[in-house]
């Protein structure tokens, strides 16, 4: 039962990574791409880590795996703000539907 749940979560994680990468390739500008990376990839990472933690051999190993998530979340939130802010200060105008 736990094995099945673990596999389902890891497949879900792979799907969100796929969607995040798809967004990175298909979205029109740096800001939209950051949305895809920050949100979809982090959800993917969360799913994969919970899936792996379910199969861990001890509580400490499971917690160590789960600890990766908040650290990656904090890094990803900070980095995407830094990139968006830099793009903005360089004068990158957000893509806008009406013009195209």
């Amino acid at each position: 039962m736990i094995e099945i749940l673990s596999v389902v979560l890891q497949i879900a994680g792979a799907f969100f990574y796929f969607a995040g990468t798809l967004g990175l390739l298909r979205f029109p500008d740096v800001y939209s791409r950051l949305h895809a990376l920050a949100k979809a990839d982090n959800l993917g990472l969360g799913c994969v880590l919970i899936g792996l933690a379910l199969q861990a051999e001890s509580v400490a190993v499971a917690l160590k795996l789960l600890l990766i998530w908040p650290l990656a979340l904090a890094a990803s939130a900070g980095v995407s703000y830094a990139i968006a802010r830099r793009a903005d200060s360089l004068g990158v105008v957000p893509w806008c539907k009406e013009k195209h």
Binding site: F15, F16, A19, G20, L22, G23, R26, F27, H35, A36, K39, A40, N42, L43, G44, G46, L73
Partner: peptide
Amino acid sequence: SIRGGFQVAMMAL
């Protein structure tokens, strides 16, 4: 964040 991940994944598709 789960809602956000879902939403942006659907938009990417």
